[in-house]
Every structure is written in C-alpha cells, then in structure tokens.
Write a protein that binds this DNA or RNA. Structure first.
Length: 476
RNA sequence: UCCGUGGUAGCUCAAUGGUAGAGCAUCCGACUGUUAAUCGGCAGGUUGCUGGUUCGAGUCCAGCCCGCGGAGCCA
C-alpha cells in the first residue's frame, strides 16, 4: 500500500508527516468531514460561509465545503482587526478561505470546531437569494433556485443518498458479473407501445427519446448472458403526482435463462443490497433528513410474494376495514381501493393499502395480461395472466420495480405485436432475438428516484434528482 | 385530459366590502459560547392579469395566465 501511486492522494497520510495539516489533493484544503483526524493541527479550509451567529466580540461562522459544515470561531482578540470586521460583514455563501486550529468540541455534532486565526475572502456576497429559515419551505419556489438550493442541508443530504444508491447499484451488478450494456436514447418508436414519447427531429425523420432500454437489454442478454442497462429514460405523459418525472433514471437488469422466480430473487436481493448500503453509509444524511429507518430495516426479511389474484381478496378485505375506520385518511383510502373494480390494474390507493398492510416491500406477481406490456410471457398455468412482478415499497411510495419473464416464443410474440398494433418495421430487429436462439429470459426495471424517495422519505421524487424535469418544469 | 386547490413584502403567512399587517431575511445597532442564536431599530407593496359590481374591492362576479395536489398512465 505504501508504495502505491495512490498513496499520494491520501491526505491523512501526508498530514502525519507535517505540523501543518495538508490538503485534499483536489480542492487544496482539508475537507470538513476529515477534520476529526486533524485535532490539534492547523488547517486551511476552502469553501463558503453557510451561516453566521455571534456577538460583538465573538463570531461563529458556519463554514461549508461540500463535505460537511463546521463551526469556525473567531475571537475579536485572536485575529487582526480587519479580519474580524470582514468576518462580521460578509454575507451567506461568500466564498472564503479560513485558516485555524482544529479543536475537539463535544457541543458540535461534528465533534470538532475550528479556532480561526485568519480569513481570506475570495468573493464577498450580500444578497444570496435562499435564506435559512424555520418556515415550511415552498418546494416549488426553491426549485426555481435549484442551482443554489443544492447547497442547502436537506437537498445536499438527499443527493448524497442518491449518489450512494447509484454506486450501490453499479457495485451490485458489477460484483455479480453483469455487463453494462448501454441502450440508445434516440429510438425509432415506442418500446412498449403504450406510453407517450417525446418526439425529436432527427435529420430527415423523427426520433423518440427512449422510455425504456429493456428491448435493447434483451439483445444484450442473448449476447452476454447477464447485462444491465442503466441510464435516463423519458416519458411524455402529463403526470402531475409526487411519483412522476418526465426524465428519470432506471436500472434494468436482463438475464438469459432467468425465469419469473429468478427475476423475483434478483429484484429482492438488489433492493436489499441497495437499502442496506444506504443505511450503512448514509447514516449522517439520514439523520439530517430525520428519517425514521424502522421500516427500511425490514428489507432484511424476505419480501412476501403475493399473486395478483390474492391481492384482489386482500384489497376487498382492506377496503371494508378502512372504509369504516375513524381515521378520515384511512377512510378516504378505503374509498379509493379497487377503484377500477376487480380484475383491473392496481391503482395508487391499492398499492398504498398493500404497503400499509405488509409494512415492508411486497412482490405482486402474475397480473392480468391485458394491463401489462406486450413482451411479457403468458403464464402457462393461466392464459389470462402474465409472468410478471411489481415490487411495491411501503410508506406510500408504491411501485419501485416492474419486471417479468419475457415472451420467448416467436409465434406468441408476433401475435402480441399484432394485437398491440406495433409497427413491424421498427420492431423487427427485436423479433430476430426469437428467431435466432431464443431462450427463456427475464429482467426488471427499477426507478432510481423512487428508490431514493423511499430511502430518504422525500414527499416528492423531484427532490431526489439534482435538476428535476416535470411537465411544467424545464428550468433551471 | 379530468377533479380539487392556490397566487398579498425577498421568504412563510394574516387581513367582516372600509387606512395593507406580522414573523423571518436584508440594512443599521447591542451582546465573548451561539447551535435554524437573541434583543432594539430602519426600510420594504401595481395584493397574478384584464374587465365588471360598489361611495369604496386583497376581499364579491366574469374571463384569462401561472403554479400546486390528486386521478389516469407508469418506474
């Protein structure tokens, strides 16, 4: 390790050989989240003024550098007069360099604070548009300032969790030997034949932004065995709910020789891995978000696997139960259960009720074929059912995963394509996969934002992506 | 697309049809241990737009614009 060329990149190692704590090799300063390793040392901090409290002779600067927030204390007697005057004057988000000594302090949540000896201003700011306030935030107004809002504590914590979730997903599939198989964003036509697509001029013709990489993933599975498609997808539906974005990220594993039970095993294992990793590595962020992790910790238990037909029974029971509840919210939920009637697709209320009942992730399998996509395999036990599964997350989050065993019979697939009126010339390449060495296979898609929404407890998925795109928001 | 709901100070919100208000932020001042600091003070407004009713409209009526929540669709 010591001879590794990467050793130079480790700030703590260099710090040990010098009286002056050295710097993060990238930002040229000591990151706030590593200050604890430098107690008693002099450090230089580069970043921004997050907030300030204090008195005429003692200032408390809340300093942030992207890795954390630390309190820097400036005593009027301890620094040159102009430095103190500057510290007193500059506004929030002024960019600054602070020099000082790291001190252990139990009053700080970080465990340390910095006794400042000097302060240099890179840019002085006086009119930062976002204020730190006890008011209940108006998310929409803050989203207008999203480019600045991402500096604030809450969005910062959520986006850190997102980063960890994405890395966990990549690690999970990489460690299992999956090949990353990128699907195109420009596609010739609808992959599933139902959703509304964004049209884009494409030279002399029209392209559509991909709403799923899955069909391409199937080509990959026949080439590599296990592949995973991971990228943004686009839906032009005019959905205005807290679960919808027009641009979102989806991870879509696809495996040859994987049948429905295997799809469920993989989905369960992946969700468990991702949630456990966020719980393990994002403790501080989840604390900032005041997330009660009790239900999240249930992911270690097996996910109940319930057939669609059994959910119909359950929902009838829950409808009767909730409708007579004294809680008005439950009563309303009860009213909305099975709104489409028996035998229809599950609605948002149905999913909420199921999540409420099981208080953990539930896998619902074998939906009616007519509510599902054309490429799903017909259940050999029941021609009216598809070999598919949705994973429903609890706490009102709803569907985070949709998957299935794919139709591997050429004849069945062709008849489905005809039934769904999908233009043959844009899908013929996909049918080739059933002409040349078709095998049983399957996979699923997980919405990254919905997963992050569940883990962080966000009210709305738009807070789980740096720059959300919704029907009425294209800026910033 | 449908249903619901909202638009007042930079932000969060008040205001029986009768002088446009508060808290926070900004700015000025006080304070040597603050933890979304506290205290005092100054300033801050075309009440989304257009029209109507009225002696008088933030408030009532009509139309429009722009959001938000939900449904459907989905991840």
């Amino acid at each position: 390790m010591l001879t590794s060329p990467f050793a130079l990149a480790c700030p703590t190692r260099r710090a040990m050989h010098s009286g002056r704590a050295i710097e993060d090799p990238i930002m040229g300063s000591v990151p706030v989240n590593e200050l604890k390793q430098h107690i008693g040392k002099q450090v230089q901090l580069k970043g921004w003024l997050y907030n300030r409290r204090g008195s005429g002779k003692l200032l408390f600067l809340q300093f942030r550098d992207g890795t954390g927030i630390v309190q820097c204390v400036l005593g009027k007697a301890d620094v040159p007069e102009p430095v103190f005057e500057t510290a007193k004057r500059i506004g929030n988000e002024s960019s600054i360099v602070i020099t000082g000594t790291v001190k252990e302090d139990t009053r700080s949540t970080l465990g340390v604070e910095v006794l400042a000896s000097d302060l240099a201003v890179i840019q002085e700011v006086h009119d930062y548009p976002i204020q730190i306030t006890q008011d209940v935030p108006n998310i929409d107004k803050l989203l207008d300032q999203r480019h600045l809002w991402v500096r604030s504590r809450t969005p910062h914590a959520i986006l850190r969790v997102r980063s960890e979730v994405v890395q966990a997903i990549r690690d999970f599939y990489y460690n299992k030997g999956f090949v990353l198989f990128d699907a195109p964003m420009f596609t010739p036509a609808s992959c599933e034949g139902t959703s509304t697509l964004f049209e884009v001029p494409y030279f002399e013709s029209t392209a559509y932004l991909s709403q799923s990489g899955q069909l391409y993933g199937e080509a990959g599975a026949m080439a590599f065995g296990k592949v995973v498609v991971f990228g943004p997808t686009f839906r032009a539906e005019k959905s205005k709910t807290r679960r919808h974005l027009t641009e979102f990220w989806m991870v879509e594993p696809e495996c040859a020789f994987l049948e429905l039970d295997g799809v469920m095993d993989l989905a369960e294992e992946q969700v468990r891995y991702v949630v456990a990793r966020a719980l393990d590595r994002c403790k501080e962020d989840l604390k900032v978000l005041e997330r009660n992790t009790a239900l999240l910790e249930q992911v270690t238990k097996p996910f109940p696997r319930v057939s669609y037909d059994d959910t119909q029974q359950l929902l009838q029971k829950l409808k009767a139960e909730y409708s007579t509840s004294s809680d008005p919210e439950l009563q309303k939920l009860g009213k909305d259960i099975l709104k489409g009637g028996l035998g229809d697709d599950l609605g948002a209320a149905d999913e909420t009720a199921i999540g409420l009942h099981y208080k953990q992730c539930v896998m619902i399998h074998r939906y009616p074929r007519h509510v599902k996509a054309f490429y799903m395999k017909k259940d050999p036990q029941n021609a009216e059912r598809a070999l598919c599964v949705d994973v429903i997350a609890p706490e009102g989050v709803g569907e985070i995963i949709g998957g299935s065993q794919r139709e591997d019979s050429l004849e069945e697939l062709l008849s489905q394509i005809e039934k769904h009126q999908i233009p043959m010339d844009s899908i013929n390449w996909f049918v080739d996969l059933r002409r040349y060495g078709s095998v049983p296979h399957g996979g699923f898609g997980m919405g990254v934002e919905r997963c992050v929404q569940w883990i962080t407890g966000c009210q709305h998925v738009r807070e789980t992506i740096p720059f959300p795109r919704t029907i009425y928001r294209l800026n910033p």
